[in-house]
């Protein structure tokens, strides 16, 4: 499963960053595909990006000022249209529709930056921590979603009513990796513009890369606002993980491989689960599996009694 997921992640990264000409000329793709978003964090200022990033798109729509003028006379319908015309309903609708079917699966299977984190974690270091680090840090991504992606672009506005994509500007390491490091190499004119912001963002990226070697997916677990949006839908999505307690032999293998540090036996529909399915793959009794239309339904079987195999490696 892990190898198959790696192949899917690689294909997804190539597909969403397939504008080869951009990597040669340093110019970004400006074709019609940029009308739509990918369901992953993928900077649209990357020379190879073919579509827009949903987190960037939400911020620029909010930051661009809405069509609602509170001082003008309005009927209820024109007010509603005004508010909606300034809200990123297209992106939110797209992300919600996708999450209704598969929850946070695009984090585990499609996200280029998620794949990058998986690859970096394979670098051998003297010590690693199982799972996703301190649990309290997992709530940070919700604060980032509400604060930096929604409230700051809405309310920190200039005299013309425009704002900035604060998450992209101050945090997003995917933008630094995919665009910030590449574009100054490809476009020498940009090198003169590098300053404190660039130093901050590169430092943050370096820090995260260091953390990636120790923890699994620190950005997904702690900081990603897209994961924060998708996460709560894990509980109700059409295709979701289900645990069959009658099959479980309590070997703990699933807990050892979970990149989010979850105990899938107790919390297989947690908001932190990135739906990588490694737990289901490693389970010797298939006690954890994806359920949904077209897939085998959960069956109540006799309690498992076999001794589980020894734990295979968890990535190192």
């Amino acid at each position: 499963m892990s190898e198959r997921r790696t192949v899917v992640q690689a294909l997804s990264t190539l597909l969403t960053n397939g504008y080869v000409k951009g990597f040669v000329t340093g110019n970004i793709y400006t074709g019609p595909l940029k009308h739509v978003c990918v369901p992953t964090l993928n900077c649209y200022s990357c020379p190879g990006a073919l579509c827009a990033c949903p987190v960037g798109a939400v911020q620029v729509v909010l930051a661009g000022g809405g069509g609602f003028d509170p001082t003008a006379p309005h009927t209820i319908w024109t007010k509603l249209a005004g508010i909606l015309s300034g809200a990123p309903v297209f992106v939110i609708g797209f992300l919600t529709l996708l999450a209704a079917f598969v929850g946070r699966a695009s984090c585990g299977w499609l996200c280029p930056f998620g794949w990058f984190q998986d690859l970096v974690h394979r670098i051998p270091v003297p010590f690693t921590k199982r799972g996703g680090g301190a649990r309290g840090l997992h709530y940070l991504k919700y604060l980032i979603l509400v604060g930096m992606v929604v409230l700051m672009p809405l309310f920190l506005v200039d005299s013309f009513g425009f704002s900035e994509p604060y998450f992209c500007k101050l945090v997003c390491p995917a933008g630094t990796l995919e665009g910030g490091l590449l574009l100054p190499i490809l476009q020498p004119d940009l090198r003169g513009m590098l300053g404190k912001l660039f130093a901050w963002k590169v430092s943050l990226l370096v820090l995260l890369i260091g953390l990636m070697t120790v923890f699994r997916r620190p950005f997904c677990n702690w900081l990603c606002p897209l994961g924060a949006w998708f996460g709560p839908f894990n509980r109700i999505s059409l295709y979701r993980l289900e645990f069959d307690k009658n099959k479980c032999v309590q070997c703990g293998l699933c807990m050892k491989v979970c990149p989010s540090g979850l105990d899938p036996v107790r919390e297989c529909d947690s908001s932190d689960c990135v739906r990588c399915l490694d737990c289901g793959h490693i389970c010797p009794k298939q006690a954890i599996a994806v359920r949904g239309p077209g897939l085998p339904s959960a069956t109540t079987s006799r309690p498992a009694d076999a001794v589980p195999p020894s734990a295979p490696g968890t990535g190192h």
Binding site: C43, S45, C51, P88, F90, P165
Partner: peptide, 28 residues
Amino acid sequence: LLALGIALGEPAKIFEKATAICLQCIGI
């Protein structure tokens, strides 16, 4: 919401922003 966004022309707004290099977004 997706249909509403299309009706309100949001993809065009996204296109406009996504086809220019956002120097702030990449830390430049």
